[in-house]
Design a protein around this nucleic acid. Structure first.
Lengths: 351, 351
DNA sequence: CTGTTAGCGCGTTCAG
DNA sequence: CTGAACGCGCTAACAG
């Protein structure tokens, strides 16, 4: 029932070699012959077996997409952008996720073996790898492009994380804030090229630029999720009760922080201002001010880069995407009252 | 450099057939031989070429995952759950998305050709297909499992959509509401087995059960996203200004509805109550009352079903997942004022 | 339990 | 521009 290449060859009155050439659009085929072959193939519903084609050609027309999560804003948008761009070029996307166990530190590892001979290129989404993991992945011999993170000389699509953090912090400084807390990623997040590290650095630099010392009591870890952001803001206000603004490294943590501030009976932005990074779809729900980025476009750009590299081009080592300040209602001037006078006791909210 | 099966065979002093058997854990291999082969393969970094294995065996150990979106709550969670379950069984996941153009009606179509000889089974996530599409997909001859939607005799993992909608509506009725609007999917959403249709049906039934006629002015379309939910609630209140509660078919639309109510200067729940379906992570931000479902578990369950079908078992035709009412602060008793007396003019909010 | 022998269904030389 | 022949790397059926 499933037509093979020689069914098509026979029906079109040509050899299998000509069928193969015609269907793949190679130049050295008579136009009339090509059209006839294509018509016959269409009628027979012939589609070349990818396995056989890969085995014979050595190419898989498949890209491996490695991501620690799928259900988070940045990741899902990058994946969707990349998938559509790749499919438009006739490439398939193989999805690989990895377990992450926060309690065990960096408990995920990328096992390159599963990708061997499966793909033509690799996209790594927002997963700061350690050097040995990068080397192991490179050992596979496929082009690799990273999104949202870059290091060890890998081609990368990312933000100017330091600049973005500085812009966010300056926005708060410009409103008059002096005690500005920062919610970063995880404590064991020390990769020299990871966004949370760069963003923390940018926050510090903007603070110092304004003559303020970003003491360690001002930095807490939110683990890049809503629950983490919520917990971390409790910790932050316990250590630094005079904080009047918070810069979170992601919108999900920023929204968690807003929940945490509600727990503490603090109003946003009257008591504490909050700014995030991302441009999360749900940000408008709570009026979240943020540094917005186009995650889907970054995914598409990364897809084009791997494809270029597969085609033999040497693309730029880095593409830096812009962020834009989106002002909403979660940031405002600091409260006029003296620090400490307005602090309330923690209150658990229902639901 | 990349070791092949005969490199391993030579190094281990056996034939390639034995290597193949040993590495795949087939029964008829001496334990000592198997261990030796595995050790040698390990040392040489040998991994069987999937293309060659597929060509020879006819199996791909790959599941095609078809989804219209990746960056929406239900879809990303189902995909993540399915991916992890499949990878745990050594199966790869090929991701397929489809363009959807709302203005052109159902502008997406599933082209079965791209899946031919690529996969061993198919997972369709929340995409109500038309009968001809289903038949075309079945024509491929692979096991198919749908998540979040089912019809035409396909094996399905889903909710009791009608019951869930009735429970949500009864919650509102129990609070004293009588004029309850409903935000469903799209106007062209008429597939007899699609969740929005069933949920609308459940809403109607619960209303009639309470002796209330669910007039057409009470139903609007939210297109399953936040923007759609927001717009639809404007329309709803224009047609039925005395509405005191809204049941939305998804949390994303419910959150959009809350934004839309804010546009209209209406308070939630003092003026209008809102309930959704899903259990979206961000629901707590706005105190959204919802009928929560476990999307990731449904993805994992669907994965197990396809795998069972591939293994030759005949699994149940349907697995129905429960939903649970999560009460937060977006629902409450209807306002005491006479309908119409409290209506405010639309006000555009900043941001 | 193990080796030998055929393909699996294509892409790709190399002649013509 | 086209066809014939070979082989990609592995699994499966059959012997032994």
């Amino acid at each position: 029932m499933a037509a093979g290449i020689d069914d098509v060859a026979r029906a079109a009155g040509v050899s299998t070699a000509t069928v193969s050439r015609a269907l793949r659009g190679l130049p050295n085929v008579n136009a009339a012959t090509r059209d006839r072959v294509r018509l016959v193939a269409e009628q027979l519903g012939y589609v070349a077996s990818p396995s056989a084609a890969s085995l014979a050609s050595g190419r898989t027309r498949t890209i491996g997409l490695i991501s620690p999560f799928i259900n988070r804003w940045f990741f899902s948008n990058v994946i969707e952008g990349a998938e559509r761009a790749l499919r438009a070029q006739g490439f398939d996307v193989l999805l690989y996720t990895f377990e992450i166990d926060r309690s065990a530190g960096r408990a995920y590892r990328v096992d390159p073996a599963v990708l061997r001979r499966r793909v033509d290129g690799i996209l790594v989404v927002g997963l700061p790898l350690e050097e040995d993991e990068v080397r192991a992945l490179q050992g596979l011999g496929y082009p690799i492009v990273c999104v949202g993170w870059g290091g060890y000389g890998i081609t990368t699509v990312r933000l100017d994380d330091r600049g973005t953090a500085m812009a966010a912090t300056r926005h708060l400084l410009g409103l008059g804030h002096r005690r500005i807390g920062h919610i970063s990623g995880a404590p064991d997040d020390v990769s020299p090229w990871s966004p949370p590290v760069d963003r923390a650095e940018g926050w510090r630099e903007a603070m110092r630029e304004a003559g303020i010392e970003p003491g360690p009591e001002l930095e807490v870890h939110g683990h890049f999720d809503t629950a983490g952001g919520r917990e971390s803001v409790h910790e932050l206000l316990a250590h630094a009760p005079d904080v009047t603004a918070v810069f979170a490294s992601s919108d999900e943590m920023a929204m968690g922080a807003i929940l945490g501030l509600r727990d503490l009976n603090l109003r946003v932005p009257e008591d504490v201002s909050v700014i995030g990074v991302d441009g999360h779809d749900m940000g408008e729900l709570v009026g979240l001010t943020t540094m917005a980025q186009a995650a889907d476009e970054q995914g598409a750009a990364a897809a084009r880069l791997v494809l270029d590299m597969i085609a033999g081009f040497s693309p730029p080592k880095e593409i830096v995407y812009p962020t834009e300040l989106v002002r909403r209602t979660s940031t405002g001037p600091p409260p006029p009252l003296a620090p400490g006078a307005r602090r309330a006791r923690p209150v658990r909210r229902a639901g």
